[in-house]
Design a protein around this nucleic acid. Sequence first.
RNA 1: UGGCGAGUGGCCUAACGGUAAGGCACCUGACUCUGGAUCAGGGGAUUGAAGGUUCGAAUCCUUCCUCGCCAGCCA
Length: 568
Amino acid sequence: MTTETSTPPAGAAPERGDFIREIVAADLRDGKHKTIVTRFPPEPNGYLHIGHVKAISINFGIARDFGGRCHLRFDDTNPTKEEQEYIDHIQEDIHWLGFDWGGHLYYASDYFEQLYQWAVYLIKAGKAYVDDLTADEIREHRGTLTEPGRHSPFRDRSIEENLDLFERMRAGEFPDGARVLRARIDMSSPNINLRDPVLYRILHADHPRTGDAWCIYPMYDFAHGQSDAIEGITHSLCSLEFEIHRPLYDWFIENLPVPARPRQIEFARLNVTYTVLSKRVLLRLVNDGFVRGWNDPRMPTIAGMRRRGFPAEGLRDFVAGVGVAKADNVIEFGQLEHAVRDVLNRTALRRFAVLDPLKVVIENYPEGQVEEMEVVNNPEDPSAGTRKVPFRRELWIEREDFMEEPPAKFFRLAPGREVRLRSAYFVTCTRVVKDAAGEVVELRCTYDPATRGGDSPDGRKPKATLHWISAAHATTAEVRLYDHLFTRPDPGAGGDLFADLNPNSETVLPGCQVEPTLADMPAGETVQFERLGYFCLDSDSTPGHPVFNRTLTLKDTWAKLQAQGRQG
RNA sequence: UGGCGAGUGGCCUAACGGUAAGGCACCUGACUCUGGAUCAGGGGAUUGAAGGUUCGAAUCCUUCCUCGCCAGCCA
């Protein structure tokens, strides 16, 4: 091989990246591979979550950066847990995230016949045997972490008998659990994975891809490495828990006539505070109705975060920002929020919406008059232009933007105080109207006609600017506020994970007042409700009943001050 | 107690024997028609511990400590 052919393609990533990229770069530089091939291998037994976003970004990202390719391969070796629905949604989620496998879509089940032949190959070599022990007996024979295992009484069957039995397993002669095929390696290995691991089990179950063609299925350990070899995967990048399995994968590769030798490199999986990333748990949250589905906006799934309004770019930025290493880690949720806000601040259109409306009547504003105020769509992006927002005598403002007896650092509206209504006028509160219960129901204000547009000729600068909406022009909407699904940063650490579920993870506000155009907002777009946060239209919306999800709040200095005040 | 892996400010990550860097978070200040954004500045690490090698160690060696993973016919 010449130096030229071993040189990474133009645009290849710098060699000083994370430790995996350094290995890949070195392999390319040394000519070990001309091009690299990675793979993302999900089991279709649930939806993809933020942890998978990291795995996807690593596998697809490295392939892209080094001019190689990344396969999507479903590891569908357990038909009792896998479903077509998951296969479909996983593909949709990866595409939405912004990655593509370019036609390289595979299934471990594509290789079932080859895998079977390789199992026969091992039997013929005296390296695999059919075991009649029950699952419990196999467990007993396996030994413990500190004691070696014992040989199964069936370990020394003849090759002929093993061949016959394995064939009859495939033919469906035996019920589930009656027999398994095991590798014949070392029952006293300190690595338990090498103590004659099960290769095949009998499962009379319909497979989403192969239907009833098979009633024996390979274990993941027997399928994964060989599938990589078949596809010519050069770098098999996976999480740390498979590190201990690597000697077994290597054993298969060495003892089977496979066409290639993939190299497995492990990295630490992602953990996020206040979040659980266990498909088992997520499945239970869905099945037991703790959430409304895999795409519930509170779920850490790609589908959930998408519905919540997190942009794909924010998710990609987030995992890029946390890096790739081998040390266990727990990323603060705030880091995810930062990545999402960073994207949204640049891209989200600004809109007015009032979550908890308080009526304001501007007494000196002409009854029946309407003015179209010009409002900037995104101060971070002039090309987003402006829009017209109608202004009238009766408005809604946010209830929490008014205090009858304001504390020292409260800058917003109060009796006798002047504030700016964004892009409109300065108004001063002249009177507070209360109901019989003493509840504030309306504010009477005056406005200064000279401040049209939001600036005063005399240079007055109110300390606060409020968002507002014309009562006559507003559309009523439901807004759903979200908080962490779990109340503690380390859910389950107290012993009972489900006791840590946050009963207030969702708050529904039925009577919000929003700009009318928001009801026709395109799906998948997230906007900023000025001063409140980022929001997107939810799929639960119906004509005449728009529903918004709060994606995230804006950073809120005032809320922080209030929280500190409460504590001390 | 067996094997494998990992320990760097509150949370991540970098440093490839040459004197601890960056992001998030936090705290100031400036600016601001979003208490947002932006800008400027700041505090905070005897690199798990103890020895050793070296002119020099987060990096190399030794011992110890702590944490994670492995005893599915799950992946």
